[in-house]
Design a protein around this nucleic acid. Structure first.
Lengths: 153, 153
DNA sequence: CTGCCTGCAAACTCTTTGCACGAAT
DNA sequence: ATTCGTGCAAAGAGTTTGCAGGCAG
């Protein structure tokens, strides 16, 4: 998806929710759109400030939920204290994460069965599933064998 | 498992690790053993203080990892800010959680396939799995239909 | 013009840590 | 007698919030 097209989704979502299209929100959106991998609120702030000096941390934290609700971003909480976010343009499958405890890399794995699992298990409890997450924590074999991780150098 | 038997496991684990068997650690252990459901560090502190007035928050936080490593407890992080813990005496299957967003109940579901999934996915990345978690967030049907949740009243 | 949005800084929550005293081995 | 463990209080990290002024609609 192109930048203008994605930005349009964001504008429309804001309008739909009765939210204003501000320069700060657009700068934060553009910064998020430029990220290729997972990023934190702080990293997003850094990048957004390069696009618009005055963007504040508070506005980043207030805009992240908006972008998550609009499905432009996906929140990835690996239980590490800080939350990660990731572009979610056009994604339609549930994703699992494999987190390397040695180099902190997060690998995204398509896991369509999660949706089925969520429904099955929820219905037995008379609940309606909202979301599901599946995460695997693991250690690097290469690091253990050779003493260095390909991603750590 | 009986209380003395479980306490023995704890004593042995402490000895094995070269850690001292203190009155505080035993009080915290007994408090944890009395919990039937998931509990937080704060709840554990409350209960432990009923058994021994002087138990401090710091010691609870320092003891929780010890009990987790000894497999007497299992840590359950549902991404809600605070961590939950649960007795894990003799459990040998991977558990998934279903979390009700309406009443915050946590249901534990046996999910043995998680182990297989973790291995399969990790090996493709040349990683060795350490742990996995699977969680479903859901909403209460009864609450939606009748306006009241059986667990909220 | 109205009132939502913003930046700033302070507040908040949960958890961790430095220190001097106290207790287990 | 050692040394580890403890309580206390302060620090820490990430995130949220109250407020006065600014800008979108």
């Amino acid at each position: 998806m192109s930048i203008p097209a994605a930005r349009d989704i964001f504008r429309k979502f804001l309008a739909q929710k009765g939210l204003r299209v501000t320069k700060q929100r657009l700068a934060i959106f553009d910064a998020a759109f430029a990220q290729k991998e997972h990023f934190t609120a702080e990293q997003l702030l850094d990048h957004a400030r390069q696009l618009r000096r005055s963007v504040s941390r508070a506005t980043v934290y207030r805009t992240l939920p908006v972008m998550t609700e609009s499905a432009l971003l996906r929140e990835v909480d690996i239980g590490s204290g800080e939350k990660f976010y990731r572009l979610n343009l056009g994604a339609n499958t549930q994703m699992a994460q494999v987190v390397c405890l040695d180099c902190n890399a997060i690998f995204e794995i398509s896991a369509p069965f999660m949706e089925w699992y969520g429904s099955t298990v929820s219905s037995k409890l008379n609940l309606t599933p909202v979301s599901q997450r599946l995460q695997v924590s693991a250690r690097c074999n290469t690091l253990k064998q050779t003493g260095s991780c390909p991603r750590l150098g």
